[in-house]
Amino acid sequence: MDVIVVLEWAFDAVLGLGLLWLAWRTLNSPDLFKAIVLFISFGLLMALAWVRLNAPDIALAEAAIGAGLTGALLLAALARLRTTTDNTMPAQLPAGSWFQRGLLIVLLSGSAAGLGYAVWILPSHTSGLSMAVTANLDVSGARNPVTAVLLNFRGYDTMLEMIVLLLAVLGIWSLGGLPPRPERPAVAVLDTFSRFLIPVFILAAAYLLWVGADAPGGAFQAGSVLGAAGVLLLLSGWRPGVRLMQWPLRLALTIGAITFIILGVLTLLYEQQLLAYPVAQAGRMIILLESLATVSIAVTLAILFLGESPDPEEKK
């Protein structure tokens, strides 16, 4: 028994120090490509930490979004950056003088001590909301407590979240979109690889969406896996047709938010409360919301990766 406890502590210690070390290397390795690769490994290590903290839902989201899609976005941006900038600029160029940086280190060390103490003195019993969540789980329409919080107890946050995603797309499009990524000749391996992987990803997304109500998974995880399938498709050279890039695309980007708003208005009319689902319908409403939110999340993430504006004349 004791051996296991020691092993667990050793594992946590290695993981914690590994996270700090990878973060530090990410932030000051001279080569930006290396920094991004280190950041992706940092994300994968974070996913492990989430598993250790009994947070499988976050582990899935972190692996798919935090490490996977953010990594893809960063690598694509770096490829584009190298076509527009002179690469002579040192990537480690410091801002401010040595004195300012020294002052900053002193300040942050002080904050570290204060913050550490503030965390340390927290009582080890907690008055969190798990009791309230458990007590109401049966009438929430989902058996996975995280899904119940995201889609029911705090569904309003998730509704606004859909607009955050939409705003990122609007932001990039209003900038006129990004220049196309420097195309590489299609790599046969990648092509075969994606032909095999894309169906697997779609199946995985469907599975995550389906079990999300009862087990770890749900709209965000399914959406990001589906989005990753989209990214693979884009990487293998596929481009949506011009017609698809207009109205159908805009509808797909907003369908999650639209569903939230329609359900919001209906519940306001019939239950007098925003997003108050009748108990008998709650399960079905959550499935509906999750399915359409998955579509929006997946398309948004793929479009953020593509980065191009839908308007042909916008390429300025």
Binding site: A61, T126, V149, D157, F220
Partner: peptide, 9 residues
């Protein structure tokens, strides 16, 4: 507690 988990997602 699942509430912080949902917040992090």
């Amino acid at each position: 507690d699942p509430v912080p988990h949902a917040m992090v997602i």
